[in-house]
Structures are given as structure tokens and as C-alpha cells.
Amino acid sequence: MSKQKLTILQVIQKGGTSKKTGLPWEIHSAQCILEQETEKNGRELLVGTVNLPKELWASQPGDYLAEFGLAQSMDGKLEPRIVSLVPFGAQKAKPSAGVSAA
């Protein structure tokens, strides 16, 4: 898994009803800036959107240390997914899977 600094600028919610199943759907996407270091280009800033897992839909704008993993999309492609977000400079992660605090 990979960890990178992610600045969330805004979370946008989209939803509707599936034409195929008739069931409601909802997606929350974060408009963000991703900072990464590469050997070839040094520090890079990437601007775009990334879908948030349901557990992170309430994330507020700000700086985070984002942990990414790969998941299979509905059409079979491997895509990066956020696994956890930690406020930048904090020490404890917000888990995206059903992990309970003891």
C-alpha cells in the first residue's frame, strides 16, 4: 500500500436511481491535490477527483495522509482506492473497513 499527502478541497455527492436495477445509488468524490515524490521528476502535484469509501464520506476539507490500495472496478480494471485518511500530522488512522476501536 502507498501513503501520500492528499489535500481535500471539497467533497461532492452524486446520486440517483439505477436504470438497470431501480435501486438508489450514491457516490462521494473528493476534489483534491495529491503530492508525490518520484525519482525522475522529484515533487509532483496532481489535481483531480477520487471516490471516497462510505466510511469516509463525512471527510472535511483539509490536509491528510492518505493510504491507497488497489481494488477491482465494476468493469474489471484495477483502480487505486483510499484505504484510510489521517489528518496530516496526526498519528491515528480512520479505518475504511469495519474495524472497531477497543
Rank of each mutant, 00 (worst) to 15 (best):
P24A: 01
G42C: 00
T21A: 03
K40D: 10
I27V: 10
T38D: 03
A71G: 10
K77M: 02
A30F: 06
P53Q: 14
L6D: 06
Q4S: 14
Q91H: 06
V86S: 09
E37Q: 10
L45G: 00
E35W: 12
Q10F: 08
A58F: 10
Q60V: 06
K92T: 11
N51M: 12
E44C: 05
S96M: 04
Q36C: 06
K54T: 07
L6V: 08
Q13D: 10
E67I: 01
S2T: 13
V50K: 15
K20W: 00
L34H: 02
P87I: 07
K54F: 09
I33D: 09
G22T: 01
N51V: 13
K14I: 10
I12V: 13
C32L: 05
K77R: 10
P80F: 07
G16H: 06
P24L: 01
E26S: 14
K77D: 05
P80D: 12
P95M: 10
A90L: 01
G22K: 01
V50S: 15
V99L: 14
L6F: 12
N41V: 01
S59Y: 09
K20T: 04
S84N: 03
V47I: 09
G15M: 08
A97P: 00
V83R: 11
I33G: 00
S18I: 03
P24N: 01
M74W: 10
Q31L: 13
R81L: 05
A71W: 10
C32E: 04
G69P: 07
L85K: 08
G62V: 04
Y64S: 09
P95I: 04
D75L: 05
G15L: 03
K20P: 00
A102G: 13
Q36G: 04
D75S: 07
L52V: 04
P87A: 06
E67C: 05
P61D: 02
K5Q: 10
V83W: 11
L46F: 03
Q60N: 03
L85V: 12
K94I: 14
D75K: 06
F88S: 01
W57E: 13
V99M: 14
K94R: 15
G48P: 08
T7E: 09
K19I: 03
V83K: 13
S2Q: 14
N51C: 10
P80W: 06
E39W: 04
S100F: 14
T7G: 00
L6P: 02
A58C: 02
V50I: 15
M74N: 12
I8Y: 03
S96F: 02
A101V: 09
V11T: 15
S2M: 15
R81A: 04
L85W: 09
K94Q: 15
I82H: 10
E35R: 09
L85T: 11
H28Y: 14
K92H: 13
E39Y: 07
A102K: 13
E26K: 12
A30S: 06
E44L: 13
A71E: 15
L34A: 04
E35T: 11
A97V: 02
L70E: 14
W57R: 10
L56R: 09
L34F: 05
